[in-house]
């Protein structure tokens, strides 16, 4: 019987990669978008095993609660019901497989030839340290991130609205 942490890692990795496989290979865009849920939840679990508890909560809140809902809205608004069956066609599969094989070979060579520290470390909570880092060392990037979010919000509202013709703009 392997230790519980190994079992947990294996289950989370299988959930993540299995769902990512559905995202990559499903012919139905709705299946792809819903399978992304499993990937995000699996990654959140992996964050917990890496002692990043705040990130796990953020991952669930932002990705599952925000981004995934947004993507599902976009899928529903941009697909017609009758062509739902093959709503996610693929092309250039052979080229893609070749390029990814090369990329994974390079990554695997680097990962196996480098002498990484391999001992397992215990998972300890890190939210307090992260908060101190954000309000100390990383304060300026933190504030710039807020501005980026505000700009993205205004930009997406402006982009997504329908053009409104006002009374004085006729002709």
């Amino acid at each position: 019987m392997p230790p519980l942490s190994v079992v947990a890692f294996m289950l989370l990795a299988a959930l993540t990669l299995g769902s990512a496989g559905i995202v990559a290979f499903s012919k139905n865009i709705i299946h792809s978008a819903l399978a992304l849920l499993g990937t995000f939840l699996g990654i959140a679990g992996l964050y917990v095993t890496l002692s990043a508890d705040f990130l796990a909560a953020t991952q669930v809140l932002v990705y599952v609660g925000g981004t995934l809902t947004l993507i599902l809205f976009a899928v529903m608004l941009t697909s017609r019901i009758e062509d739902m069956k093959v709503s996610n066609p693929q092309g250039g599969v052979a080229v893609a497989f070749g390029l990814i094989a090369v990329a994974l070979l390079v990554l695997g060579k680097v990962a196996t030839e480098t002498n990484w520290p391999s001992e397992a470390k215990p998972a300890v909570p890190s939210t307090a340290k992260l908060g101190h880092a954000f309000l100390g060392e990383y304060l300026l990037p933190f504030e710039i991130g807020s501005v980026v979010l505000l700009a993205a919000m205004i930009g997406s509202v402006v982009l997504a609205r329908r053009a409104v013709k006002r009374a004085w703009e006729k002709g």
């Binding site: 865009i29 993507i71 996610n88 693929q90 250039g92 990814i100």
Partner: peptide, 8 residues
């Protein structure tokens, strides 16, 4: 690389 649907 393979998807044609922009959301994909």
């Amino acid at each position: 690389m393979t998807r044609k649907n922009a959301v994909g």
